[in-house]
């Protein structure tokens, strides 16, 4: 374990993330409740994007349906809460539901190669969406499911929950990505035949990554709906939400974990800051994201780390 810790302390990304977190911790004393509210949502998105980066950046599998995992977690938590279960139990159930959904999806899908894995995950989102609409009497359908409980009424408390959750998730995902299994996962992702010729069961390692990604996505989805007070297709299941998660992760910088969180915060804060532009705001934010992805393939973190890669 000391070896892993040493690796962590040597990583420049880790220090960037630590400094960033310290800044975020001071914000409740600096910015308004309105801004804190926006950041709270951004942090949950950060966990979505970091979980997604573990799959895309490390396992090299494009999951077009992150909201299948997020939505499964969110609705499992919401439905359980509707039947009177306490929040902590609902959160665990959210993570567990995403894990089960993820395994059911990934075991057959990982046997496919190339773009078919991604397409399978995309179809899964549509299925989940239809499922929610069809069973509207239980799930609230397109209107949404109102939660019995919420995490807290207090903006600052909610901010701490979200920040704490993102920091802990980020630390776990980042440590994993830098660990020995993270190394095997990257090898499996970049050169499937090469990795298996070194004796690694590629499917096993990718499946494990998918499971970890699923648990964090589901948990974050459940946390988000307990913050918002409602679970709706538009916020946790719709394909466009998934696209936003993907853009955030790629924008922030593939294969960095930390970058995904930064990309999410940037995307959501920028969308909010440009709100006076009305309809144009989404257009402008998407335009910026497109430019970054086209001209800086390694994203925002790639720009920061560039000097180091070349030496």
């Amino acid at each position: 374990m000391t070896e892993a810790l040493r690796g962590l302390l040597k990583s420049r990304l880790f220090w960037i993330a630590l400094c960033g977190t310290v800044v975020l911790v001071t914000l409740p004393w600096v910015v308004s409740a309105y801004v804190l509210g926006i950041l709270t949502v951004a942090y949950y998105f950060g966990v979505f994007a970091m979980s997604w980066d573990l799959l895309f950046g490390f396992a090299n599998e494009v999951n077009f349906g992150p909201t299948f995992l997020i939505g499964s977690g969110a609705y499992a938590a919401g439905l359980l809460n509707a039947s009177g279960a306490p929040i902590w139990l609902c959160l665990i159930a959210g993570g567990a539901a995403a894990l089960v959904g993820g395994v059911v999806l990934a075991v057959p899908a990982l046997r496919l190669s190339g773009p078919y894995f991604g397409l399978t995950t995309l179809v899964a989102v549509l299925l989940l969406q239809q499922f929610i609409v069809i069973f509207a009497s239980r799930t609230g359908g397109e209107i949404g499911l109102t939660m019995n409980d919420i995490l807290s009424m207090d903006t600052t408390t909610n901010y701490w929950y979200a920040l704490g959750f993102m920091a802990v998730s980020g630390l776990i995902l980042f440590t994993l990505s830098r660990s020995a299994v993270g190394l095997i996962l990257q090898a499996s992702g970049q050169d499937r035949i090469g990795a298996s010729a070194l004796g690694f069961n590629v499917v096993k390692h990718k499946l494990a990554a998918f499971c970890i990604s699923a648990v964090f996505s589901g948990l974050a989805g459940a946390m988000l709906v307990f913050y918002l007070g409602t679970a709706s297709v538009g916020t946790v299941v719709d394909v466009s939400v998934g696209v936003q998660v993907i853009i955030a992760a790629v924008l922030g910088g593939r294969r960095t974990i930390v970058g995904a969180a930064i990309g999410s915060i940037f995307l959501i804060v920028a969308g909010e800051a440009l709100r006076p532009l009305g309809q144009l705001s989404t257009f402008v934010v998407s335009g910026i994201a497109l430019l970054v992805i086209l001209f800086f393939v390694d994203g925002l973190m790639g720009l920061l780390l560039r000097g180091r890669e070349e030496t």
Binding site: E3, A4, G7, L176, A180, I184, F200, K204
Partner: peptide
């Protein structure tokens, strides 16, 4: 490295 999932370091 061995082909194990629980090998963090």
């Amino acid at each position: 490295l061995p082909d194990k999932l629980l090998k963090l370091a």
